[in-house]
Nucleic acid binder design. Structure first.
Lengths: 333, 333
DNA sequence: CTGAAAGCGCTTACAG
DNA sequence: CTGAAAGCGCTTACAG
């Protein structure tokens, strides 16, 4: 490892070729046709650059250019399919559009979240997508102050456009599915329990609304103590259910795959293995369809959400509009 | 959105404060004590910077500095816990060490993989970690040519140090577990099937070795047609098993959670739901423990692998050593 | 305690 | 078809 080796620059290339740095630069960044540089020169430069393992110094290049083409995203976690999928699709869709994506993971930590946003701004991002952010408005305020566009995804904010799932409708339909399967398979009609999430979280609140509305429509009253929302973690879900040993048919609405882990763990510890339980989950995981009692999952439409995000980018005036994307329902049998 | 707004620079700050850009710069980047700048000046600068929403221009700053502190990682996919975990822990461990992580996802595409590596090099990374790369040596060669350290993780290469799991031992132990559970629970002893992966892939080969060794030790001969390695995808695994309807006890060694999806799907389609099947999986997923017939999973020790990677960074001469990290066994019952 | 000046590696009008 | 020159926003010796 030649540690203190200086990287090859366009000056090195220019010297060795016997041309000017300007010409080398033009060849390397593709503007050489409009500068009418001879094809032979271009060819020689390209060949030498290849041989020397030349790579442009992005820092120098971006410093000089007026646009960075960089687009940043903060994401809370990679611990479930949803955010992993978002990060992955964001990267490939950005590249397809000629943009350079940078994604950073904030550990669901509000301070890291803001630090991450600042870091991306100092990379000169042209737009910053806050995904699942706990405090998107703080980020939007900051972005606005420095003239950078910001967009919220998954969790809405009030200071920038937001693209989120239609949580109400998804939850409504999932609730209907669980109810009808309870009736058909267990001959039971009754209030479902809602497990996981936090009421201060917009998505949980909207899903709970859909959950309640679907039952109200069937004349089912849901007791307050059936709403078990004290966090997302698997452990929390398991704790909340710990005392509960259903002695007959029951139904559960599980809010997120993280909570689902706890639910399934609780279920498998029941005397009868929870044979009389049916549940559905708002969130998708490929192993979900093989879990006993799972009647269906709501899959958020990441691709359409991102399509909408990209449409918003560079769309001039950004109002704080809220775009809701329908979810897909995965039904198991 | 003030689109064409110029960002605040240290010159703006200096003018408004009535100090020189040098002093402002020193205050902002923390070198001001050694430059013995007055605390009052420092305070005023910091306050104004805060008010103006100043953020350093990373491009300009890095261009001037001699070290970037940037450390890059390419990762194939975020479609399972393993790589998501790696990316996430890499980011936080890098920050803990005062480094700036950049992770890019290459879609398991060899060309994107190399492009990603080049992109990171042009960001002036000081070290590039190739995780699960299909052609790590190509990347190492490139890095060496431009004087950047490279390290392989998960999948080994021959041109740079590699930190990988001890696949042989993990597979050996998992095979023993499956065999003993087949015997205990099904009263059956016999050769297991190996499902998923690719023989050209170092990890699959090492795991297959462990798989065969554990059976050889017990005097079990594994027929060649029991080795079903034609790729990782869930669909592939399901296809390979499609014709197979065991009419008695059987055991499977599943190579990766991706393949596991296909296995479980095949299993759930069997007449008896696959009650007489026991299997284990080389790879960890939290839902795995709830799958019927799953006796255990091998969890790769991401944290220890990354510890080793970070120890290697900046460690001077990089030999192409191979560091094997023991896996953890998760046993279900 | 502080400032003037050089320069990091590029890009881009501008002038041939 | 090509080059000289300015300048992007910083950092860092160097000289007070």
């Amino acid at each position: 490892m030649k540690k203190e080796m200086k990287r090859t620059t366009i000056y090195d290339l220019a010297t060795r070729i016997g041309a000017s740095p300007s010409s080398v630069s033009a060849v390397l960044n593709g503007t050489w046709k409009k500068r009418r540089i001879s094809a032979k020169l271009a060819e020689r430069v390209l060949k030498l650059a290849e041989e020397e393992g030349y790579t442009v110094n992005t820092q120098a290049s971006l410093l000089r250019r007026e646009r960075s083409n960089i687009i940043g995203m903060i994401v809370p976690k990679y611990d479930n399919r949803y955010f992993g999928d978002i990060a992955e699709k964001f990267e490939s869709m950005a590249r397809l559009r000629g943009l350079v994506p940078i994604v950073t993971c904030t550990q669901r930590n509000p301070d890291l979240e803001f630090d991450g946003a600042k870091e991306l701004v100092s990379y000169q991002v042209e737009c910053l997508i806050s995904t699942g952010a706990t405090d998107p408005d703080r980020i939007s305020d900051f972005c606005q102050a420095v003239g950078v566009q910001s967009i919220n995804m998954d969790l809405p904010g009030s200071k920038a456009a937001s693209v989120i799932s239609d949580n109400f409708t998804g939850a409504f339909e999932l609730t209907e599915l669980i109810l009808s399967r309870c009736e058909k398979e267990l001959g039971w009609v009754g209030p479902l329990r809602f497990v996981g999430g936090r009421l201060s979280d917009h998505n949980t609140a909207a899903r709970l609304d859909g959950f309640l509305a679907a039952q109200r429509e069937r004349g089912i009253e849901v007791p307050e103590e059936y709403i078990l929302v004290e966090g997302y973690s698997a452990k929390k879900a398991e704790q909340l259910l710990a005392g509960f040993e259903p002695n007959g048919p029951t139904g559960l609405f599980v809010n997120s795959t993280i909570s689902l882990e706890g639910v399934v763990s609780w279920q498998s510890g029941l005397p009868d293995g929870g044979k009389m339980i049916r549940y559905g989950c708002f969130d998708w995981d490929p192993f979900g369809s093989f879990l006993p009692g799972n009647v269906g999952m709501v899959e958020q439409d990441v691709e359409t959400m991102l399509d909408n995000v990209f449409d918003l980018i560079g769309s001039g005036e950004s109002t704080a509009e809220l775009i809701k994307i329908p979810c897909k329902m995965r039904v198991f049998d």
